[in-house]
Design a binder for these strands. Structure first.
Lengths: 274, 274
DNA sequence: TCAAAAGTGTTGAGTCTACACCCATGT
DNA sequence: ACATGGGTGTAGACTCAACACTTTTGA
């Protein structure tokens, strides 16, 4: 009987026809408008990182950072590498959000993409757009509906929209498809929407929102993050009580902001209680 | 300037080194013990489908159904095909739950697996294990803890356990690794755990539980499914009130069960309310 | 008859929302 | 001084777990 060793010696993986594997990353951060008053907390905006493609296919269209997975790295490692290459910063949160594998999603051939969501702290100096490149942060907003969604992108004077509709594909999996020609390369509009819906859902229950902030933060900052992501505002007094379950005091205080200083908090490590 | 067409003609995707792409599917169904009393509702058990490998690598070990993604199908389609080949039944729910891409997860070479969770209705006659084959349904139970989990598998007189511990890999992604040698092939124990944790979390909020049942069901049946998945029992009166949000009456009644007949319900189509 | 499930009602504890109110700060 | 956010308190609405109780069936 053939041993596993002999079997493996006779096995040549290269001789099989197979798709290529890429990864695309939706990188989020939260940025501020310029403040109109020295006191007033500036409005926060959710932004994502896009790259203007310099090469075919989809030359001159905006696309998510991403690329092929190398033989010596895992898929999340590849995603990390892409983010680092584009921003110079290590992401704090990296979350897988699905495989995109439509047969014609890439004109170069059969390429499967594993999509990731990634969050950068807003105090990190992400260098996107500064180095030679064609990369930049777009403010993004989502108008969601029962079975339809419009995403708007804005960066300086560039602005565009994508409309997507919900459809059911294989065995109850919902996915979204772009209506009309996409201003984005590949199926990246669909990837962005899938990613955002997950992010928003989690944000309601205090998931991922800490990843947008430095390790010490005020409750108001945390509330701004949640509100920016969910699009819903809540009374500060009530937010404070809900959040208390997830945070602990550091003892340090904020200051210099033209109003009463606030306690700085840190994320509390959760124990799944019984 | 080179056109996209010219570019694509000169692009040869086959000439790049690349991983292979597989998919593995965790197929769940709920089965019953034989009843001891004609009246009593038999105990329900969560089961998953495993295949005994007839070939290297991991010959004679139990593994998830799965295989390579073909060039003419999407990844979820490949997952569907695998399930259909093994059970003869079309799954109702198919959910992506991550990429498994450790460099050494498969001794044949660099193979990335996209894992799916799949649910079969318990009235479907899944043929697993009957046709020539070495496939079968294992009752499965999970003992979860803060950072550790033991999974037990039972089928007739075959029984084994796997222990896994939580660890943090890339940028805050949690994943699990098997302690000691796994009784399962590849990293399938880790895939099963990841899948189950998602399933259980969703089941608490009435996600996926309908996929285990036929289109018309009693509230008690629905409650059994939820309890089987979450491991928590709730008072029938309270369950009934919570579930009412997700179901609607059909007008039909169950009967012939040695006790008062129950209204049959169906899943209500949700509208995301404002 | 009776065990078992179907189904309704109620009570008390806890949670959430909205709002009123006072505090501390930098310009 | 004062606008602005920090922070506490509370009344009323709502939610939820627990449990008592009645109904209906097939053997």
């Amino acid at each position: 009987m053939e041993s596993e060793k002999t079997y493996l010696e006779g096995y040549h993986i290269e001789s099989y026809d197979r798709p290529s594997v890429a990864t695309d990353v939706v990188v989020y951060t939260i940025r501020q408008d310029d403040s109109d008053s020295f006191r007033k907390d500036p409005q926060k905006k959710l932004s994502i990182l896009l790259i203007e493609r310099g090469e075919h296919p989809f030359k001159n269209k905006w696309a998510l950072p991403g690329g092929f997975v190398r033989m010596d790295e895992t898929v999340p490692e590849a995603a990390m590498r892409e983010v680092r290459e584009e921003t110079g910063v290590n992401p704090t949160a990296l979350v897988c959000n699905g495989v995109f594998s439509n047969l014609n999603r890439d004109p170069r051939g059969r390429i499967i993409s594993n999509a990731f969501t990634c969050i950068l702290k807003n105090d990190e100096k992400a260098t996107a757009g500064t180095d030679a490149s064609n990369a930049g942060w777009f403010d993004i907003s989502f108008a969601t509906d029962n079975d339809c969604c419009v995403i708007s992108f804005t960066k300086d004077d560039i602005t565009f929209e994508v409309k997507l509709t919900k459809s059911e594909s294989t065995a109850g999996m919902t996915n979204y498809s772009t209506v009309g020609e996409s201003p984005l390369a590949f199926d990246h509009a669909e990837i962005i929407l899938t990613s955002f819906l997950q992010l928003r859902e989690r944000a309601e229950s205090f998931g991922y929102i800490f990843d947008f902030l430095p390790s010490e933060f005020t409750l108001a900052e945390l509330q701004r993050v949640q509100e920016t992501l969910t699009g819903r505002v809540s009374a500060a007094a009530n937010f404070r009580r809900k959040a208390s379950e997830y945070v602990e005091e550091t003892g340090n205080m904020s200051g210099g902001a033209g109003h009463r200083p606030a306690m700085l908090y840190r994320k509390k490590v959760q124990k799944d209680a019984e």
